[in-house]
Write a protein that binds this DNA or RNA. Structure first.
Length: 379
RNA sequence: GGUAGAAUACCCAAGUGGCCAACGGGGGCAGACUGUAAAUCUGCUGGCUCACGCCUUCGAAGGUUCGAAUCCUUCUUCUACCA
């Protein structure tokens, strides 16, 4: 259950705690993504050392491999992956949208084919909740429909209607002991749909509310708008979770808009592609200028990678394709995200969050792509 | 000493008269990545403008031809075999 400890005086930022079966987590919080029962390249000890309190995993992927029979026999996800701390599982709604090409949406769920071997699968509210019960996650997500943000008004409206209906069904399903269930607000960039969806979910009543349908190809400005259209309709005494977001700068902005929970593949994915997040922006460790750079990824960082290795060494490891490079940059990036959240919480507690936000916006240089979004936002 | 073969951009390597500034790899450089089908994907990689275009390249020097990396001559270097 969520406990709101403090609300920032100048922004909508909140300080809170969410009690789950496997422990209490502090919000605002970042959840590293462990889609297939592993945060790519990192082991539980490393995750714990860098400060991760909760991780995310994915029902769709675990359903395909190893399958729920295995998960059940192995005693659930925590035991299987040796992570005795909180876990949030996504329902698989996003995967159905993002990778199942041949899919048929029906009132009772989605039939589609596995991206691996084409096996015919069916995922409905009942299946999604049952699998998450088997997994034994601390927080289960309802099955939602996440349409492309470019959808027509009618498509988006239907997706919202279906998402609400499925949410009702999910709510009625049996769940694991103490498992929290979060509803997911859809509605793309349409204020009226966001409002409709949020209100309907709140009236059903969930343990927390997620804002979905973001980071699906829209601009940063549109993404912020989607959150702004949704947040006012979410209860203040419940956790709000922005699904799949975001960059460090976006997270700071979203916290200021009242979001408590985040997950994003960027820190781990970008790490494997040779780039690191710092408080000043991303650093491409592959880049030539790191060739003889004796400094750490980020000056002053206390993560294992920065305490021990130079950029020059990490760049070398990338060049010769040593796996250690991917692990160390993943350690750093996750540490950076987790540490950012710790700082955010401290600043909210000390009433200095507004200043922190302004300073961050001033000093963090986003990538070119995101800079384009900033220009977009200014218009 | 003789015979045969080979020399292509940073490296390997295709190309054997015009469609060649030259396939494809590698390497190098740059960019992308947002509820992970991602240790992935995309672009650039002779020079100048960096658009069109122009200029200099395929061991070296000559030659044949309207036109040569491609044909001929000589030279240089390397490889294999024979002495």
């Amino acid at each position: 259950m969520f406990k709101l400890l403090k609300t920032d005086g100048h922004t909508k930022a909140r300080l809170g705690q969410l009690r789950t079966v496997h422990g209490v987590i502090d919000t605002p919080i970042f959840m590293p993504v462990g889609t297939q029962a592993a945060v790519k390249t990192l082991d539980p000890r490393e995750l714990r050392e860098l400060g991760a309190q909760i991780i995310l995993s994915n029902t769709y992927h675990l359903c395909i491999r190893p399958g729920m029979e295995v998960m059940e026999k192995m005693g659930g996800l925590h035991q299987f992956m040796s992570w005795p701390y909180p876990i949030l599982t996504d329902s698989g709604g996003y995967q159905v949208f993002s990778l199942a090409k041949i899919r048929k949406i029906k009132p009772e769920g989605v039939s589609f084919r596995s991206h691996l071997d084409g096996t015919a699968l069916f995922l409905g509210p009942k299946e999604a909740m049952h699998m998450q019960k088997v997994l034994g996650s601390d927080i289960a997500m309802v099955l939602d429909e996440c349409p492309p943000h470019t959808g027509t008004q009618r498509q988006l409206h239907e997706a919202v209607e279906r998402t609400i209906r499925w949410a009702e069904h999910c709510r009625q399903q049996p769940r694991a002991e103490g498992q929290l269930v979060f509803g997911i607000v859809q509605g793309a960039g349409r204020p009226e749909l966001r409002e409709q969806c949020a209100k309907a979910l709140v009236s059903i009543g969930f343990d927390g509310y997620a804002i979905g349908g973001v980071s699906v190809g829209e601009t940063e400005a549109e993404m912020m708008k989607a959150v702004e259209y949704t947040e006012p309709f979410l209860p203040a005494d419940q956790a709000r979770y922005a699904m799949g977001l975001g960059t460090p700068a976006q997270i700071v902005e979203l916290v200021a808009r009242g979001v408590d929970m985040f997950d994003c593949v960027l820190p781990t994915r970008i790490a494997r592609n040779g780039a690191a997040f710092t408080r000043k922006g991303t650093v491409n460790i592959k880049a030539a200028y790191c060739k003889t750079d004796p400094g750490p990824i980020e000056e002053g960082c206390t993560c294992f990678a920065c305490r021990n290795f130079s950029r020059a060494y990490l760049r070398h490891l990338i060049n010769v394709e040593e796996i250690l490079a991917l692990r160390m940059i993943s350690v750093h990036n996750c540490h950076m995200y987790v540490q950012l959240m710790t700082d955010i919480r401290r600043h909210i507690a000390q009433e200095t969050f507004a200043e922190f936000r302004a300073e961050f916006a001033r000093t963090y240089i986003p990538s070119k792509n995101l800079r384009a979004c900033k220009v977009d936002a200014a218009e």
